[in-house]
Design a protein around this nucleic acid. Structure first.
Lengths: 167, 167
DNA sequence: ATCATTGCAAAAGATTTGCAAGGTC
DNA sequence: GACCTTGCAAATCTTTTGCAATGAT
């Protein structure tokens, strides 16, 4: 559902496929057809997505390239573990976005059309580090989402939306 | 589950009860025993909480003061609407905290003990406003959570925790 | 008396799990 | 062949809903 404005990719040594194979090897896990299909599909699309959307985009049961729902969920968790994807929550569901080869960023979320827009801010990272230091916290990450109405919607051209309830 | 370090309360004209009665009146809604119990209970505790915890703290079914699960959920939504509580998501569940009479703030979340710590930052609000302006966004709010390990846990005195999966 | 609210039971939505069958090393 | 994975069906967890009974104004 939420689309995004894409930021410039970051220089990375390996393709997501290669990076994931490396991860699988290092853990004694196997390189299966389903995992190949999912890496391939996910990294050929740049939007934010949730499990449901991903499943909807894949071939149906019976078709070549289909992956079952449980496997999709299990594999998404592996991707997060492997550092390929980042996971966050929006309106009660888990949303994923590229992490590997993608710059760290935060989001602006339009409550009207439910689109996600990305932005990068060094200043924010700096602020975060200072806050953490002041609280003697060992930071590992952060998540900032700015809620509001995007320009398009503010001008009265709202695009399709789904149910909302948070903030 | 997540406890919090309390910030100084903000000066407010009405008690939460009074404020809520006002809200109910203005909407033609009724002032019931269950709603009274919930406002009373919630505003005599200062921690962050989720629906499950709230229910666990209330008297059991059959006891005086008990409120059913559906009513708890329905009422929490009303509190959010009325501006008494703020809602956010953590590890896949909805978490609530006082809003009425409480200063705006953000959180530090310890991945180890799962406690939430609060902090206020004008600088963050300013940064947020500038980012929004740059994207021609009409801001209505934001949510920042800094993830990491709190001092206590870093020193090896982790307190009880529950399942985690986000970030 | 009218109409909102409650509680129950059941539904719904998202995600997870046990387990037998199948695939990979 | 050993053992990791998959898919199915079913379970789980959190939250929501239909509806008849109850309560507030």
């Amino acid at each position: 559902m939420p689309e995004n404005q894409t930021l410039d990719p970051v220089q990375t040594a390996l393709t997501p496929q290669a990076r994931f194979e490396e991860y699988l090897q290092s853990r004694g896990m196997r390189h299966t057809e389903q995992r190949r299909i999912l890496v391939e599909h996910i990294f050929s699309h740049h939007e934010h997505f949730d499990a449901e959307q991903l499943i909807a985009q894949l071939p149906l049961k019976g078709q070549r390239g289909h992956v079952s729902r449980p496997t999709v969920y299990r594999t998404l968790a592996e991707f997060v573990d492997a550092g390929l994807l980042r996971k966050f929550e929006l309106n009660g569901r888990a949303v994923y976005e590229h992490d590997y080869g993608y710059p760290a960023h935060d989001h602006l979320y339009c409550k009207q059309c439910q689109r996600l827009f990305e932005f990068e801010s060094e200043e924010l990272v700096d602020l975060r580090n200072r806050v953490a230091r002041a609280h003697r916290f060992r930071v590992t990450g952060h998540r900032l989402t700015i809620y509001g109405i995007c320009e398009t919607c503010a001008q009265g051209q709202p695009r399709t939306r789904r149910k909302v309830d948070l903030i």
